[in-house]
């Protein structure tokens, strides 16, 4: 492994890390602005022009706040909880292909941190780990509301990982690979997986709402019932870390959905545009397209949050186990039959 390779990856990791943090930070502003728009009000507009510096002000405020650690809590786990939540939220973006390869001076630069051949499984592993932060944080607080929030978070994310995984199996029948890069390359141009897996996409979308704890699945924090859910006892930046992790998760979930079902950085006419603008600008345009898709998904997350009420705990479980899992299994069976028949006769 030569130095240039390490350097290249290091720069890429840094850039992606910073971009994810930036997107997450500005998602908080976007959320408040969109909520304001939906609710006939303005939203934050004091810090900077149009509230542009609001995320910075929020972050600063979080750092300046007094850190309160409850006396009876387990201090190590109390700090470990939000750290773990933030960590798992940050590493999810490692396998996402952000754009086609850039050819710079005869050297190919991949816009992906790690093109591992089990990319889909990696994402799954990371997402499953995410709930540990919430559980540990909620348990360590030694507060009944936090504990209830943590229990809800655990059971919710375990229940919804199953239909999510099953919907992905159907997708893998179509793609025949676990590598995200290859999945994206297969969807070249407008040949997106959503065409082959519409039901799978809907199941995946619902499950990603549940996995990111967004309304209508925000039971773990559920202000009106559990005060703050798992983060009731948190203050200062530890609380900020939980919130930040939620927005990062949303960003990663949007990126994964765009990659798996909406062609990643592909768009109809990508070849024509690439030939027109050259090997450096072309990939950058493709990357911008990916980000446009991601932002559309993030907007969708917010739009839903400020429109619908949340489920009750048992209704959430019913939806997961009695509706989504059978649907996902049916989707696998149908996809399998269709693919077999197609391969045999055409």
């Amino acid at each position: 492994m030569e130095l240039a390779f390490v350097l290249e990856k290091f720069i890429l990791i840094t850039v992606i890390f910073l971009v994810s943090l930036g997107v997450a930070a500005y998602s908080t502003l976007a959320e408040r602005k969109i909520a304001g728009y939906l609710q006939d009000r303005v939203g934050p507009n004091r810090a900077g022009p149009g509230g542009m510096f609001q995320p910075l002000a929020d972050g600063l405020k979080m750092f300046m706040k007094e850190e309160i650690i409850p006396t009876d809590s387990n201090k190590f786990l109390f700090i470990a909880g939000p750290s773990l939540a933030l960590l798992t939220a940050c590493i999810g973006s490692a396998v996402i292909p952000w754009g086609p390869n850039i050819i710079l001076g005869g050297k190919t630069i991949a816009l992906q941190v790690a093109d591992i051949n089990v990319g889909v499984l990696y994402i799954f592993g990371v997402v499953s780990l995410g709930v540990y932060g919430l559980m540990i944080g909620g348990w360590a607080s030694n507060n009944k509301f936090s504990l209830m929030g943590a229990v809800r978070a655990a059971s919710q994310s375990i229940s919804y990982e199953i239909p999510m995984g099953l919907s992905l199996i159907a997708l893998l029948l179509v793609t025949n690979t676990l590598s995200l890069k290859e999945i994206v390359e297969q969807q070249h141009g407008g040949n997106w997986n959503i065409i082959y897996q519409p039901l799978g996409f809907i199941i995946f979308l619902v499950c990603s709402f549940a996995e990111t704890n967004r309304t209508p699945f925000d039971l773990p924090e559920c202000e009106t019932e559990l005060v703050g859910g798992y983060h009731t006892e948190y203050s200062g930046f530890k609380m900020g870390a939980f919130m930040f992790a939620e927005y990062l998760n949303m960003f990663v979930a949007s990126a994964v959905m765009s990659t798996l079902y909406f062609g990643g950085y592909n768009y109809p006419g990508i070849d024509w545009v690439s030939n027109l603008v050259g090997p450096i600008i072309g990939p950058l345009i493709a990357m911008a397209v990916l980000f446009a898709k991601i932002f559309a998904f993030i907007f969708f997350f917010m739009w839903v949050r400020w429109t619908v009420p949340r489920f009750r705990y048992d209704q959430l479980m019913n939806l997961g186990w009695k509706v989504l899992i059978p649907l996902a299994i049916a989707n696998i069976v149908i996809s399998g039959i269709v693919i077999t028949v197609y391969d045999k006769f055409f």
Partner: peptide, 16 residues
């Protein structure tokens, strides 16, 4: 009631 079910938006429409 809307807020308690988790839908905040309707409440603010009415507050106006």
């Amino acid at each position: 009631l809307g807020v308690d079910t988790g839908a905040f938006t309707g409440f603010l429409w009415l507050m106006e």
